[in-house]
Design a binder for these strands. Structure first.
Lengths: 137, 137
DNA sequence: ACTTACGTTGACGTTAACGTAAACCAAGGG
DNA sequence: CCCTTGGTTTACGTTAACGTCAACGTAAGT
């Protein structure tokens, strides 16, 4: 059932964050859960938003960036200038993401190959030590 | 000539950072340039370290992490227990990097395909508006 | 001698993204 | 009735990674 609702602690344990974090995201305008009295009630859509936020964080986006992205998901269907602006924003964002993807892929591969080399140097140093026994001998 | 040396502003403009940033990295123990009087003189090796730090940043590593990684590049060639520990650190780090690579690739692809969908929804909404002329008509 | 460019060391300020603590309410169990 | 288990708001604290002065030294050019 994708239409159930969630308590704040439930979401917190699900995503391994604290309730403070979730309330903080609301404070920053990234979430707007319903209320039952004082208590926050999170919908499936809220859950998805949280997921978006956390994914954004893993990619190094700021909360502002994630907020921006979240707002791309519910366009104003009656306002064509707004829609056009939104489309451009989406395309720009995609461009940024793709460029980032390229850069990170290269960075990660570079780093891995350098770690390989560093390991190799260590292994060789160890081999050398094996051949000439210690100075104290 | 890879063995020339660099001034602090030279490195700063090269990498598009401020001199404050470079001194900050030194303060945190990631760099240790020579001195000529008071003035810092950076070697080619220092330049490489800076590059490592900045790449680390792009990957979301902390300065502490980068410091750790930099220290992997000049092993103590006479101490085999140290060398063994270092090799294990390198392997662990590579494991982390690879896992991060996997995760980021998935995150980026997910995000791109979701942006594609969002764009599509916008375009459809625009089409709808074109068909039924504005309410004021 | 004066300015300009580049360098230095403090030291305090700033921003993002929460952590932490205090003080409180509400529902249910024993 | 009290306690435990959630939930709430408000507010101050914290950390990383610098930014931003201030106050000064030095060497080169005019």
């Amino acid at each position: 059932m994708p239409n159930r609702s969630y308590s704040i602690t439930e979401l917190a344990t699900d995503f391994d964050i604290t309730t403070r974090t979730i309330r903080f995201y609301e404070e920053k305008g990234l979430l707007n859960p319903q209320r039952k009295g004082q208590t926050r009630i999170y919908s499936a859509a809220d859950r998805v938003k949280l997921k978006l936020i956390l994914r954004g964080k893993r990619l190094g986006l700021s909360l502002e960036d994630s907020k921006d992205i979240i707002e791309m998901y519910h366009p104003d269907h009656d306002n064509s200038p707004q829609l056009i602006k939104l489309i451009n924003k989406i395309r720009e964002r995609r461009r940024l993401i793709k460029e980032q993807l390229r850069q990170q892929l290269q960075d990660l591969n570079d780093m891995i190959s350098e770690l390989d080399q560093a390991e190799e140097r260590c292994v060789e140093a160890l081999d050398d030590i094996q051949k000439k026994p210690s100075k104290t001998a």
